[in-house]
């Protein structure tokens, strides 16, 4: 009896632990997913290179720390700036020159761009996996029955700040409002004098910035290398799809849900199939509720 109770306690402790780590990876997915949503809403493009921005965030930080010997906060700031610029450059060099974009050519060109970025990162940074130090030590804190790393707290805090700032930007700033107008109706936005192409550029910049932040804050937990972007990008996309490609709460919930399910699945069922969980969810959502879990059904168009 006592033994059974002991084991039950153990299980609930474990679950609490899985929840903590699931929520923190989920927050990362949410950040990346919002990046997907911002670009999609502004341009109807799914940017396959979004994951590479996540990778660039980590790699640039590493570059700042190891090569330039910058202090961590400066390195992070530099990495976000450089990645944002990369996002701008990416839009300028791949999306904008397309004369008659079709969904197919956009898919292919963003895939092309993503493997190009990955290849360059490999060429410059090598194929090794690198560690980035945790922002404030790695002594675990215990909260209730679960232990939590300081980095987890950083992830939660920075994600919340980024999402709130993002929300404020889109809600109140002139540029943010203009971007929302473009998302609602590009032609009409163009007619009232909004520079649509500039807004597209902004959406790539903001997505790249958010993606790089995600890549930086997760790097101390998972390490970073030239190819971390593929999986993180796809998981972020999955979060966005669960959230119905909303640039706000839907995708945040989607990311958290995905992170928790993955973590529970890995812990309780099989760690090997952990990555498959996200894709099974992705397929199920696309098949059954392509509008996402949290939005109402759109009027059916046959």
């Amino acid at each position: 009896m006592a033994c059974l109770k002991q084991r039950n306690m153990g299980l609930s402790d474990q679950i609490a632990q899985y929840l903590v780590s699931g929520l923190s990876t989920g927050a990362i997915y949410a950040l990346i997913g919002i990046g997907f949503a911002i670009i999609y809403n502004g341009t109807e493009i799914i940017n396959f290179a979004q994951g590479e921005m996540v990778m660039l965030g980590g790699m640039f930080t590493l570059f700042g720390l190891d090569v330039l010997k910058l202090p961590l906060p400066v390195a992070i700031l530099m990495a976000v700036t450089l990645t944002t610029l990369s996002g701008v450059l990416f839009e300028r060099l791949t999306i904008r020159p397309l004369k008659s974009p079709t969904p197919l050519s956009l898919v292919i060109i963003t895939i092309g761009g993503s493997i190009l970025i990955r290849g360059i990162a490999m060429l410059v940074g090598g194929k090794d996996t690198h560690a980035i130090p945790a922002f404030s030590g790695s002594d675990p804190l215990s909260i209730g029955s679960a232990t939590i790393l300081p980095q987890h707290l950083w992830i939660f805090a920075l994600t919340v700040i980024a999402i709130v700032l993002n929300k404020l930007f889109f809600q109140y700033s002139i540029t943010g409002k203009a971007m929302r107008a473009c998302a609602a109706n590009r032609r009409a936005a163009g007619l009232v004098g909004i520079d649509v192409r500039r807004m597209v550029l902004f959406s790539f910049a903001i997505s790249a910035g958010l993606g790089s932040l995600a890549g930086i804050i997760v790097a101390p937990l998972t390490m970073t290398s030239y190819d971390v972007g593929v999986m993180l990008g796809l998981k972020g996309f999955c979060a966005a799809i669960i959230g119905g490609l909303s640039g706000g709460l839907g995708t945040v919930l989607g990311g958290l849900l995905l992170g928790v399910l993955e973590s529970l699945g890995a812990g309780l069922i099989s760690s090997g199939y952990k990555d498959a969980i996200a894709f099974i969810i992705l397929l199920l959502i696309l098949f059954i509720r392509p509008q996402g879990l949290f939005s109402r059904a759109q009027t059916e168009r046959v």
Binding site: I45, V107, F279, L286
Partner: peptide, 18 residues
């Protein structure tokens, strides 16, 4: 269609690979 199809087939491929 389009991007969604690309992502879904990509997901299918990765599941098989896993």
């Amino acid at each position: 269609k389009g991007h969604y199809l690309a992502m879904a087939t990509l997901g299918l491929g990765i599941i098989i690979y896993i």
